[in-house]
Design a protein around this nucleic acid. Structure first.
Length: 914
DNA sequence: CGGGAGACGTA
DNA sequence: GTACGTCTCCCGC
């Protein structure tokens, strides 16, 4: 039985047929006895009927233009200005058509502000992304721009089908050149200006010589004769014509393509409507077929419940060349397939490939075991042979892949000489962009949330703990089911999540324009790794160890007994019970706190806290950094390779683990020394470039506060400027203490602070902190307004957004618990700033990486990202010009109402580079 | 052996 | 006051 996913999508351009049917002479004559014209109704309905006959499996969706102006009128007031208003006898037929289509149970879309073309473009674009075949039924030649291997046109009135080859035959240009063609030729009816005297022949001639409108325009001077002059004088308006001729692919729709499913026909309403409009043939059909029609509708409805976990799965385990070749052909023919690797380790640097799984069509997946090596493991296909056969496919840009965390698979495959391309979709990132906090984004959680399906867990087949097997030790049958299911589930998840994402253009663009392109960039950075001076760290560990034992003896002496300095619980007893030191603060669970700030304060009056503080700081440094980092050096590369996690944080930041390179010490003197061990290879320099005050600049931009914008635009020291405002003193009389307070206020604002929090931070009374804040909001009123608006938006919509439309949902914003609600409000204030900063540096990474790729010079490597900072290794011979170029790219990544400033440091190690 | 608590490293 | 990851201790399985 064919699954729902195979049924083609039939998009009907209702408006195009409406006009054409209206002008057909024999239809014009039709009307009801009381004079209501019905020719257009009949024409459109006949056409839908014939489509349903030609595509019995088809999922028919009908789209009409909405009344009123569209965005094209905003772009160009003259758009369609020559069109006469719609005749009344046509207008009166629209509502009946809509009613009848609705009663038939067909999805009907009428979207204001755009044309039917744009809705169709968007739906066909979504369908292509999901691997769904699409047929667009239209009489409009402009739609030829939408044709691709999976989208074709059918003119139902002439019965002419048009695929890519047919477009080339009819127009003489490829589908992707149709917009260029239309812009050059222009359109009298729609009032789109082209090039005078340039008709189809000339446009084709030009586009054969130069591949795009842009190129034609670039070479306008080479075109001779009168038409050449016309081309040159059209240069100014051609971009507009191009825009007007471009069908939108990202219209915001209430329902995504997979949600548009037929409902059961409302036979009674349909009968009444057919009677009313005297559509005798349709009425006769309805009575004749009423039973079977309803059955059809039911059958379609059931099939429409996609992603049902009940669908019988066919999982192949491929161990012979013939079956493999059959699958290879399937993959080659597919526009999109899901893909997963099975390996021996979660660590992409250590992982050895054990098998591969694929899925082209939901419910049908294959596992290719390659390196199962338990006793009695059956013979498997040769790993090198399989990889060689798959290499062209995996490296093809035009065969699209979907996976779950493909960065991992790409990293593993890179060690087998395969540079994956065509990474088009990643379900982990889809879920993350849709809602970063609704769920974790691992496959098990996604399958449960989006498919209601419990997957086989790795632990179910491998066991857990020290006895856990690695994948190569697992029985091929068990492993095959698990692995094939992973590929199958991945495709199902994609079909479930992507359409939801596609409904919101800004979220789709965060996915398509930031996260997906960032994936290979992060993979490259991870592969690059960073160079560590292990000897230096070992020496530091030695020094710290000596000091730690001194401190331990000292602490035991003061306490009068031996205890574990790193046990907060034992320390509590010593400090607050035995030494009877007063309790300053309690932990959330109610125990007396021994946190740093408490010990700092106690250190003024007692000797032990000071010793503990130094001990804690040093033991953290030793265990987390000086001892640990050398253990993480990969023998293969002699470098440390972190993992950047792209789907972890609520706000859009990256995170880093194994090791976390984003919390290497910098604040304390001893801590900073660890950065001395982050070194450059011979003849290279470490270059660190960070965005100065990026979050405050974003606050200035988002709030559009004149005072704050001015301070940044004039390149002032913004904390000093803030101090001058708060304390009402001239700029050059601001004391360092005032500047420090102002800085705390600025940071506090980014964190959604209260006067209480500020008071604690600054060690001033609450009313003093309140006075600072009042004064601040008085001097920067738009900041106050922005904060209020943000809180309001969070409360109204349940989410806040970054400048680029990345959303953070805040379910707690409606919490009954006041603490949680307040916390959600602070997160709401912080997220747009932290998140926009994350978006910006991600975009900068894309730009910088693209530039580095273009240089094609392996003396330039991007190695780390630390939220507002990028770190590079650059050869000493080119360090100056390369650094300048990267700074320039980072400064111009986005344009805001305040300048974005990147500052570079160069050195032999990370410490020097600061 | 797993996981919570408490502490502390970063932006 | 925001956002993270990792360490140790220590309880309970």
């Amino acid at each position: 039985m064919p699954t729902a996913d195979q049924s083609p999508l039939i998009l009907v351009d209702g408006s195009s047929y409406l006009f054409r049917a209206y002008h057909v002479p024999y239809l014009q004559a039709l009307s009801t006895a009381d004079g209501q014209p019905t020719g257009a109704i009949t024409g459109v309905l006949n056409m839908i009927r014939s489509l349903k006959k030609d595509y019995p499996n088809g999922n028919v969706v009908v789209v009409f233009d909405a009344k009123g102006k569209t965005f094209r009128n905003d772009m160009y007031a003259e758009y369609k200005a020559n069109r006469p208003p719609m005749p009344d006898d046509l207008r009166s037929q629209i509502a009946p058509i809509h009613d009848i289509i609705a009663a038939m149970g067909l999805p009907l879309l009428v979207v204001e502000g755009v044309e039917a073309d744009d809705v169709i473009g968007t739906l066909s674009h979504q369908a292509t992304a999901l691997g769904i075949e699409t047929v667009i039924s239209t009489g409009d030649k402009d739609m030829a721009q939408l044709v691709n291997p999976h989208v074709r046109l059918i003119n139902t009135m002439t019965n002419v089908e048009m695929d890519e080859a047919a477009v080339i035959e009819k127009f003489g240009v490829r589908p992707d050149q149709i917009i260029d063609y239309l812009a050059l030729v222009g359109d009298k009816v729609d009032n789109i200006p082209g090039v005078d005297k340039c008709g189809p022949k000339t446009a084709v001639k030009w586009l054969a010589k130069y591949p795009s409108l842009q190129e034609v325009m670039a070479h306008a001077n080479e075109v001779k004769g009168k038409v050449g002059e016309n081309l040159r004088s059209a240069l100014a308006h051609l971009p507009l014509s191009y825009e007007l001729a471009t069908i939108k692919l990202d219209v915001e729709l209430e329902q995504s393509v997979t949600e548009l499913k037929p409902a059961t026909a409302d036979t009674e309403t349909l009968r009444a409507l057919y009677k009313k409009y005297e559509l005798r043939r349709l009425l006769a059909d309805l009575d004749k077929n009423s039973d079977s029609d309803e059955q059809d509708a039911d059958a379609q409805d059931t099939a429409g419940q996609q992603n049902s976990p009940e669908v019988v799965a066919e999982y192949d385990i491929i161990r012979d060349q013939a079956s493999f070749n059959t699958w290879l052909e399937k993959l080659n023919a597919a526009k999109l397939f899901a893909f997963d690797t099975e390996t021996t380790s979660l660590d992409y640097m250590q992982a050895k490939l054990v098998g591969l799984s694929f899925c082209v069509e939901v419910g049908k997946a294959a596992y290719v075991p390659l390196a199962h090596d338990y006793a009695d493991a059956p013979e498997q296909l040769d790993l090198d042979w399989v990889l060689a056969a798959l290499k062209p496919l995996l490296e093809s840009d035009s065969v699209l892949k979907v996976g779950q965390n493909l960065k991992y698979d790409a990293n593993v495959l890179s060690h087998y000489g395969i540079a994956m391309q065509g990474i088009a979709f990643d379900t982990m990132l889809e879920s993350y962009c849709l809602n970063s906090v609704a769920t974790r984004h691992n496959m098990d959680a996604l399958a449960e949330k989006y498919l209601g399906y419990k997957t086989v867990h790795f632990e179910d087949i491998a066991g857990k703990g020290a006895k856990q097997l690695t994948f190569n030790q697992i029985d091929i049958e068990k492993a095959g089911h698990y692995a094939a299911e992973d590929a199958d589930i991945t495709l199902r998840l994609h079909q479930a999540i992507y359409p939801q994402l596609a409904k919101i253009p800004s979220q789709l663009s965060v996915y398509n324009d930031i996260e997906i392109p960032l994936l290979p960039v992060l993979a490259r950075m991870e592969q690059n790794g960073v160079l560590i001076d292990c000897d230096m760290l070992a020496q530091q560990s030695q020094t710290i160890a000596t000091r730690l034992s001194e401190l331990e003896i000292e602490a035991h002496n003061i306490a009068g007994k031996s205890f574990n300095l790193s046990s907060p619980k034992q320390l509590q007893v010593i400090l607050f019970e035995e030494l009877e030191i007063p309790v300053i603060k309690k932990t959330p669970k109610g125990a007396p706190s021994t946190a740093e700030e408490v010990l700092q304060e106690l250190a003024l009056d007692y000797p032990l806290p000071k010793v503990i503080l130094e001990n804690r700081g040093l033991s953290k440094l030793k265990s987390t950094y000086t001892d640990k980092l050398p253990l993480l050096v990969q023998p293969k590369t002699n470098r440390v390779h972190t993992s950047y996690h792209q789907a972890v944080t609520a706000t859009g930041r990256l995170s880093s683990t194994d090791p976390n390179l984003q919390n290497i010490p910098i604040r304390s003197e001893e801590g900073r020394k660890i950065r001395l061990a982050f070194i450059a290879p011979p003849e290279h320099k470490i270059v660190a470039i960070d965005y100065s005050q990026i979050e405050l600049r974003i606050m200035a931009h988002l709030s559009d506060d004149p005072g704050l914008v001015k301070a940044f635009s004039e390149g002032k020291d913004v904390h000093k400027a803030t101090a001058a405002e708060i304390f009402a003193v001239p700029l050059d009389e601001v004391t360092s203490d005032q500047r420090r307070s102002a800085k705390a206020v600025n940071f506090g604002l980014i964190y959604g602070m209260s006067a209480f929090g500020l008071a604690k931070q600054l060690h001033v009374p609450r009313h003093t902190a309140q006075a600072y804040m009042d004064k601040y909001f008085e001097r920067y009123p738009n900041v106050a307004k922005y904060m209020d608006d943000t809180r309001q938006q969070a409360s109204d919509d349940g989410y806040v957004e970054t400048l680029f439309g990345r959303r953070l949902y805040l379910p707690d914003i409606k919490a009954k618990n006041a603490m949680r609600k307040k916390a959600a409000e602070r997160a709401a204030i912080n997220a747009p700033m932290q998140g926009t900063a994350a978006d910006i540096i991600k975009k900068a990474m894309l730009d910088v990486d693209a530039w580095i790729q273009q240089q094609n010079d392996d003396r330039i490597k991007m190695t780390m990202q630390v939220h507002d900072e990028l770190i590079f290794e650059i050869h000493q011979d080119i360090v100056e010009e390369t650094t300048a170029a990267i700074v320039e790219i980072m400064n111009n990544t986005v344009t805001m109402s305040v300048p974005l400033i990147a500052e570079a440091g160069v050195g032999d190690n990370w410490e020097q580079a600061h």
